[in-house]
């Protein structure tokens, strides 16, 4: 019966195809919000009121909330100016991670206080990526032991904590004492820097890895590779899809690099002490 239906369908198609075959004249495309056009020619940085501001031609760059963009660190302002300068016809705001962090830190759209942010970060410890390991598959477990365990050991030594990995679905036990120690470390940073930390932790889904990369123990690429360890392992068997795996890897790297740069440029203050000429 299905065969007959199919033949009649083909027959009707054939008879219709001669002259009145409906040709769609409009092409359906998905509608996205239009991106703002690049309205400036040149970007620059100027120093005013104790902060560095970015100018687009003669206009000053403003945050989404309307505040004037102003940061303490010169390299950060230069990086943001460069990022705006690197836009072609349109300003692709979703791909400007460095500017995004700066805007978030200046505007603080969620009105976070320091305590909120430290609590947000602490909540990540119980579900930290590197603390959940898997022992049913031998190769994977070996890989996780070789790659993740040294980072956990480094973290425990650096922050004098005693985090332990778990081999099954029960979350690892984190003592209050450990939480206090980690909270104290985060409390010592300023509100702006904590925005960078949150950005890094959100990217990696791991406090241990975020702290390791911000403390310069591992490079950004390595940190992202460690966060995607199991994915990379499975990709070896099931194949790598460029528009999914590579895309997410590049995005995570860009995000993490932006967060690390932001934290470092916010923390570091360099001054030159000159020799006195006698």
């Amino acid at each position: 019966m299905f065969a007959r239906l199919a033949t009649t369908a083909i027959a009707t198609l054939r008879s219709g195809s001669s002259s009145k075959w409906p040709v769609p004249t409009t092409i359906v495309s998905r509608q996205y919000a239009a991106q703002p056009k690049r309205f400036y020619k040149k970007t620059s940085v100027l120093y005013a009121d104790g902060g560095y501001e970015v100018t687009l031609d003669h206009r000053k760059l403003k945050t989404p909330k309307g505040a004037i963009f102003s940061v303490k660190s010169e390299p950060l302002a230069i990086a943001v100016a460069t990022e705006f300068d690197n836009q072609r016809e349109h300003i692709e705001r979703s791909r400007m991670h460095l500017s995004a962090i700066c805007f978030t830190a200046i505007d603080n759209p969620n009105n976070f206080t320091k305590i909120d942010m430290v609590n947000y970060l602490l909540n990540y410890i119980a579900t930290d990526t590197v603390l959940f390991q898997y022992d049913n598959e031998k190769d994977l477990q070996e890989l996780q032991q070789n790659e993740w365990d040294p980072v956990i050991a480094w973290f425990n030594q650096r922050y004098e904590t005693n985090l332990k990995k778990t081999m099954n679905i029960t979350p690892p036990k984190v003592t209050d004492e450990d939480k206090m120690k980690i909270a104290k470390h985060f409390q010592s940073h300023s509100l702006e820097t904590l925005h960078g930390f949150i950005f890094a932790v959100d990217t990696l889904k791991s406090i241990v890895l975020a702290c390791a990369v911000i403390d310069q123990q591992i490079t950004v690429e390595k940190a992202v590779a460690l966060a995607r360890l199991e994915e990379e392992y499975q990709v070896k068997f099931w194949g790598r899809v460029e528009w999914s795996h590579d895309l997410s890897q590049q995005e995570l790297q860009a995000r993490l690099a932006a967060a690390v740069l932001y934290v470092h440029m916010n923390c570091s203050e360099s001054f030159v002490k000159e020799k006195l000429l006698v």
Partner: peptide, 11 residues
């Protein structure tokens, strides 16, 4: 420098 390089390359 390396981190900024990663940022530019990945983007």
């Amino acid at each position: 420098g390396q981190t900024y390089l990663t940022y530019l390359t990945s983007t």
